[in-house]
Structure formats: C-alpha cells, structure tokens
Simulated scan of single mutants.
Amino acid sequence: MNDMTRKFPKITPEGLDSLRERIGVKIENTVEPWCYEATRDNIRHYAHGIGDDNPLWCDPEYAKTTKYGDVIALPSFLFSTSRIISGYVGGLPGVHAMWSGSDWHWMKPVTRNTELRTVAYLKDLVEHDTRFAGRAVQQIYHVDFYDAKTGDQLAEADSWCFRTDRDEAREKGTKYTEAKAKGVRKYSQEELDEYYKLYEAETVRGAEKRYWDDVQVGDALPDMLKGPMTVTGFIAYAQGWGGLYIRANKIAWQLQQKHPSAGIKNRFGIPDCPERVHWEEEFALEVGAPGAYDYGPERASWLTHHVTNWMGDDGFLQKAKCQVRRHNPEGDIIVIKGEVVRKFEEGGKYLVEIAQQAHQQDDELSAMGSCIVELPKR
C-alpha cells in the first residue's frame, strides 16, 4: 500500500512508546459519562436499549414486592457510567478502535438513584497479528466503580479494544472475505417467524426463586434471540448507553477542536465522529468491517441479560466475561446459548458457573462468555 492509497493514520513505534508511558497512571479529567446516577429512567432506557423488559429494572410497582423494595440497575448499566470501560481510548490518534471484550466483577447491586464515581487507568498493551487487519494492539483498561456518597465499591472491570490500521483492514484483511462475497441476505417471513419463536418463548424468572440445590452441571439455559440486526437497533442501544463520540452542533465542534482525529470527514467534507461505523454503511466498509455493525458493550450486555433472565430476582450476578469474535453487521441474527459447567461453594456463598456462546445465522461464532452467579440455598 502506498501513501497515495492510504486514508487513515497507522500504528507507529513512536505512538506505542508514548502509549506505554500511560500504563498504570490514573486517568484524570475523564470524559463526562452518559449517566452519573442510576435513576429510574436511566436504568429503564439502558434496559430497553438491549431489549430487556425485566420488571426488576423497569417497573417500580413490581420491584416494591422484591427484597430490594425498588428498581435496581441491571448489571450492564454500569457501561453507561464510564466512557473508558465502553471504549473511549487514548493514544494512537486516528487509529481505529474496536471494543472487543470485558471482564466484570460486581460486589453489590446498584440501587435506584445511586450516584456513581469511577477510577480508571490503562492496564496493559498486547500486540497481536490478526486476520482482520494484520498487526493490532490490544489496549486494556481497568475501571473501579464506587457509590459516590458512601464510598462503597460496587464493581470493577477490565475492558479492551483492538487498535487496528483501517487501511490494512480494508485492503488486506481476510476475516470477512467470504461474508462480503455472499452479498446482502434477504430473509423470508417464514425464516423470521421461526427465529421469532424464541422471542415468544422468552421468560423472566423473576420472583420464582431458582435454588442452588436444584441446579445441576449440564443444565442448559433457554436460548436467547437478539436481532435481526438493524441500524435502528444499534441506535436504540446508543440512546440508553450514550455512545462515545455522539455530539451535536457546538458540542461536536468543541470535541473535534480538542481531538481532531475524532472528526473524520464524511462524503460532504464535514468532520463527523468515527462512531458512525455503527450506522453508516459506507464508512464501515472503509475501515474493513462487513457493514454497519453493533456495539461491543451491547454484545456483552446481551450475555448478561441471558443470565439475569435465568437466575431470578434473588440471584446475584457476581462475575461476567465476554469476548467478541466478529462484527454483527446489519442483517445478522444472533442466538445465545448457555450451560451450567460448575457448581461450587466459596466464602459461604453458593455459586454456579455458566459458559455461553453466541452464534449468528450461518453458525459463525459472534461472542463467547462465562458468568458466576450466586443463588439462594434451601
């Protein structure tokens, strides 16, 4: 590739050296989060953004009947309280960032109207060779989440983005060669109706306790459907989660003045945010993706939704890990499967481990994960 065909900045040794100097350094003056507080509306908007209608998060009248006495935040809501955990990366200006996974540990439930405070730092950089874009850098952040008023720690998490060369991904990447060759797939109503049976069958365990005593290794969780993927769905998630760079008018201009690489010119010659890979097909193709695609934190939130439906109001999601394996472009349909793989006691708590996999309509692996759930014992 010569300089005439290059459109975007690339990963350089100097850029990596500069970024390594930030490892372990607390990030000061982090970008303002989408949500400072776990209000009723903020919780509901996030839940609806992932297609989750669990009344424990969404219905105060129902929630009054639970041990919490009010709505609580779904575990993945915390994505909306930190741009860092959601993929707002520093360094390597103009180099594409793809959110690719997270590893969460929750200590306490987030109750209604809790005000959140976060502490974040760059944890590590790991170089990889990928099919998507050749050389890539895995940029790992750590974030601690606190109740701003009491100081109690509520959760901690690592998340990581892969920084990739947009031009290399577009011109030489092989990960999506076959998918692009297939072209646009159009579904029949009969095919869609078959998938929609999973929506019809989806149940929330709710008030019916799931006891640790009754769970066995090998038990399967009900399959969960997500999709079909549409730009409307991606935007619905952004409404609840807030996105990373979505700004309007003067505030967009201010962001671009501070971070010029956050304003990539569109077909009108106007600087616009890199996040438009999620709704602008043309730009998504320019960075090597198979089309406009879903958000990474959205994918992680689907996996935790799968488990919270299963565990019921009296379960507590203690840990969850998600690894994103491919983009989910418009038109994809995702089915999430899970299985209990371990049952154990630890520190006086009764726990089960669940392994999860999400595949798209052609049976390609979209994401994989695992969870640790605390359940009541008889």
Rank of each mutant, 00 (worst) to 15 (best):
R112G: 02
Y36A: 09
C35I: 08
T65W: 02
F132P: 00
Y121N: 12
V31F: 08
C35E: 13
A97W: 12
I50D: 00
V25N: 03
W99K: 07
K108L: 13
Y46K: 04
L56P: 00
F132K: 10
A47F: 12
G87C: 01
Y121D: 09
V119W: 07
R131P: 03
A120L: 02
D52T: 03
S76Y: 04
S82I: 07
P109Y: 12
R112D: 10
G69P: 05
I85T: 08
V89Y: 11
T65V: 05
Y121M: 03
R40E: 15
A63E: 07
D103V: 13
W104C: 07
G90L: 14
Y46A: 12
D70Y: 13
R117G: 00
Y88T: 06
K64Q: 10
K123V: 00
E32V: 13
T66M: 12
H105E: 15
H48M: 14
C58Y: 08
T66N: 08
P75N: 03
P60I: 03
F77N: 01
G90C: 09
T111Q: 13
T111S: 13
P60W: 05
P75V: 06
Y46V: 10
V110F: 06
D129K: 08
E37F: 01
H128R: 15
E61R: 11
D59W: 04
G87W: 06
Y88F: 15
R83P: 03
E115L: 14
K123Q: 11
L92E: 04
P33Y: 07
G101C: 10
D59I: 06
R40F: 14
A47Q: 09
H96C: 08
T114K: 05
L78R: 06
E28K: 15
I72H: 05
A73L: 00
M98K: 04
S82G: 05
F132Q: 09
S80N: 03
V71L: 07
K123S: 08
G87N: 02
I84A: 04
H105L: 14
D59R: 08
Y36E: 14
H96L: 14
F79V: 05
T114G: 11
W99P: 01
F77G: 07
E28C: 07
G91V: 02
R83V: 10
F132D: 00
P93V: 03
Y68R: 09
I43R: 04
T111N: 09
N42F: 05
V25E: 11
R117C: 01
T111A: 13
L74S: 08
N42C: 12
E32I: 14
V126I: 15
N54G: 00
W104Y: 09
T81G: 00
F132S: 06
E115C: 13
R44F: 12
T66H: 13
C35Q: 15
I85F: 02
L116Y: 06
